[in-house]
Amino acid sequence: MKAVRLHAKWDPRSDFKLGNKDIEGKVSWLGSKVWRYPEAKVEELPEPKIKRPSEVLIKVRACGICGSDVHMAQSDENGYILYPGLTGFPAVLGHEFSGEVVEAGPEAINRRNNQPFTPGEPVTAEEMLWCGYCRHCADGYPNHCENLHELGFDVDGAFAEYIVVDAKYLWSLRELEGVYSEEKLFLAGSLVEPSSVAYNAVIERGGGIRPGDNVVVFGGGPIGLAACAILKRAGGARVILSEPSEVRRKMAQELGADVTINPLKEDLVEKVLDYTQGMGAKLYLEATGVPQIIWKDLEALIWKARGINSTVAIVARADVNVPMTPEVFQVKRAQIVGAQGHSGHGTFPRVISLMASGMDMTKIISKKISLDEVPEYLTRLQTDKELVKVTAVNS
């Protein structure tokens, strides 16, 4: 079968020390510290086979390019990949996907009806392959599994014609039938994973909001846009997006944002305070990946606002140090929380239900491409910010 696989050279930086979860030459939880000279290639690979009774063979119908895919294929001036997390190469990229069941093992149970999966079922999958038995999983935090693997990072992903996934990570998309056409259903299904990352950040980790609260989202990428849609449906009085790209600002308004601000041309702090009558926001989402740029404005907002008890949720990955003023958070009774991943606490089924009830995230898809074009767009997306979500589609 055809697949897009990324290769890189294991060449650790001088300050890197092998961790207890790392495997020399194969896997590291600190990808940007060890992997050098990445190259994505379209290759012919054997079609995967079911090996365990709980596994499911899926024909991939749609798979979106994530910022993580771009950063794994992108290198710094010394040739090291930009993505800082769990990676193991070579690996087939792609984790934001949907498809239809081809074959299922006898113990592959579909949560939709508590019966074994049958061919033809439309599905999507979590990309974080949590073990279910470590302490963090047992405590209900699968995003922080101590034995974590990830589809498209250290396990072969979905930029391929077929993929095998254990049933415990799968979610049916039947609820979307009748709401979306077949092609659009699979496009929507490929956006469940990134939308669930946003849901986890603003609802689970950020604590959500009460109807009538104000929110500010920094960054209009797919996660920030999904956050705007979710927070408006959660009752946000003023959902405000800070984003330089006009294309992304318009998308945010289509998805529910009340106000969009171009921080390169407008005074972000003054605008937010004006729109909120000086109260500021209950929730701030850092979804830019460049906190070193936006942090000054974020702290100024918290400090100058009349409101207290705000939460800053950090969802974008960034291996940078950011100066923080503790006094701001003490006096304003504010807090910072980190948000990683999407699993647990029912994020996937709730996002699917939101999509079924009218939250059409397919609006963020800028372009549909073939598998052969994925390497080209992994490069193009490094600089082209007018493209929001590019999705590879298989017929």
Rank of each mutant, 00 (worst) to 15 (best):
Y37A: 07
E386A: 11
S190P: 00
I314V: 14
D319G: 02
V322T: 01
V312I: 15
D76E: 05
V312D: 00
G120V: 09
N143R: 13
F153E: 05
Q74G: 01
L387P: 06
G346E: 04
S343E: 14
L82P: 01
S196I: 14
I23M: 10
R248S: 04
A201D: 03
T379P: 03
D213I: 11
I81L: 05
L6Y: 03
T347V: 12
R210Q: 12
V102E: 04
G338T: 00
W10N: 01
E243S: 01
E121H: 04
G105M: 14
L371I: 10
I314A: 06
D154R: 06
R248K: 15
A158L: 02
G152E: 02
A339I: 08
D156I: 10
S310P: 08
T379H: 00
G219R: 09
E286G: 08
E146Y: 01
T87C: 07
K265C: 09
V27A: 09
I302H: 06
F348M: 15
N214K: 14
K41H: 02
L86M: 12
L93V: 07
D76Y: 03
E146M: 14
N262K: 06
V320F: 01
V164G: 03
Q253L: 12
L371W: 11
G25A: 04
W29M: 13
E266L: 13
D22P: 04
L170V: 08
Q74T: 10
T124L: 08
A91F: 02
R306E: 08
H95T: 06
V4F: 01
G212A: 11
T379N: 00
P48K: 15
G79P: 03
A108W: 05
R333L: 09
Q335Y: 06
Q335E: 08
D139E: 15
A201T: 03
V331N: 07
A160W: 04
S357G: 03
V179L: 08
K265E: 12
F186K: 02
I203H: 10
K168R: 15
E327G: 07
Y199V: 12
G208E: 04
L231E: 02
I209C: 10
V337N: 04
I364G: 06
S357D: 10
L255P: 11
K168S: 02
